[in-house]
């Protein structure tokens, strides 16, 4: 315990003030304001009119909204279904103390340092249907038609979003898994080898169980992270075709700032509250899981 006197502690308040005030002004207050707006009709010109739960009721029956929610889940869980096994596999390979291991680790990390919004635009260029880079590479091998319009239909557009998402974040997960694996003692593997365990057995009976705390963290973080996704969808598909690939946050963003149905701030706020509840439910599950692991986090 430090020895500072009461008067001196008064100065400490000044230390806390800037961050706390900015946090209050630009994180807390906006939250309350958004919740308030969700009970009103408001277009930014005329004063807000209290309308009770009517925004929530309209949102309940808004099929385009629930389609966006569905897309969000498809992207989150589809991405994970590819990413988690892939990252685990790569981490196992990298964990063998290879000479070039550090190099590969570095390369896989690169997408993480780059703006995902910019990569959305770059991939929009690479995925051009006619004379595009990706079609130019894939069509000679016969994987896709030469004029494959990736962003032109819902399934392939969602697939593109998933794959670009995997491109952006598999390296981070690989590294997190690798960090976890490096805390597992070599002796355990040695003992298992002497008992005649093969590599698959060692992976499934030793690596995965001992990795489960970090595995759970990575899984939940990726779910929560992709539930909040906005940048990539906005810059790669922008909801195309015809709003079919909207996710929660791009959809409600349209009601705030969009050209088509923008400036319906009350309705947008109600959608935002729904979205927050959905994210919060998943976050609570995350908290629950990360608490229940006994002392795994350090």
């Amino acid at each position: 315990m430090s020895l500072w006197k009461r008067r001196e502690r008064g100065h400490a308040l000044l230390f806390a003030a800037p961050s706390v005030l900015l946090f209050a002004a630009f994180v807390l207050l906006p939250l309350l304001y958004a919740v308030y707006l969700s009970f009103t009709r408001f277009n930014g010109v005329v004063d807000p009119v209290w309308v009770g739960l009517s925004n929530y009721e309209s949102a309940w029956g808004d099929s385009a909204w629930w389609n966006s929610v569905r897309n969000t889940f498809i992207l989150a869980f589809g991405g994970m279904a590819i990413e988690i096994p892939l990252s685990l596999f790569l981490a196992v390979l990298l964990n063998r103390a290879l000479k070039l291991g550090g190099f590969f680790r570095t390369v896989y990390f690169v997408p993480h340092v780059i703006s995902i919004a910019v990569m959305g635009v770059v991939f929009y260029f690479l995925l051009r249907p006619v004379d595009g880079v990706i079609n130019g590479l894939l069509s000679p091998i016969g994987i896709v038609a030469a004029d494959m319009d990736w962003l032109g239909s819902r399934p392939t557009a969602l697939l593109s979003l998933i794959l670009v998402g995997v491109w952006a974040s598999f390296g981070v997960n690989t590294i997190l898994f690798l960090v976890g694996m490096q805390t597992i003692s070599r002796d355990i593997y040695e003992a298992a080898r002497i008992d005649g365990a093969g590599s698959w057995k060692m992976f499934s009976r030793i690596t995965v169980p001992l990795l489960s705390p970090i595995l759970r963290i990575v899984v939940m973080l990726s779910i929560i992270f992709s539930m909040r996704s906005f940048d990539l969808v906005k810059t790669l598909t922008d909801g195309a075709p015809a709003g079919q690939t909207e996710v929660m946050f791009t959809y409600l963003f349209g009601y705030y700032f969009g050209l088509d149905h923008g400036a319906q701030y009350g309705y947008a706020s109600a959608l935002a509250v729904y979205a927050a509840i959905i994210v919060a439910i998943l976050s609570v599950i995350y908290l629950y899981l990360s608490r229940s692991k006994d002392g795994g986090s350090r």
């Binding site: 946090f23 002004a25 906006p30 909040r228 705030y256 700032f257 979205a275 609570v284």
Partner: peptide, 24 residues
């Protein structure tokens, strides 16, 4: 203070509060 700040991390309202933040 720490608890309130930490709690806000789990709300994930970034996009949702864009408009209020702009107004403020």
């Amino acid at each position: 203070i720490a608890m309130v700040m930490g709690g806000s991390l789990f709300l994930g309202m970034g996009t949702a509060t864009l408009y209020p933040r702009l107004v403020i």
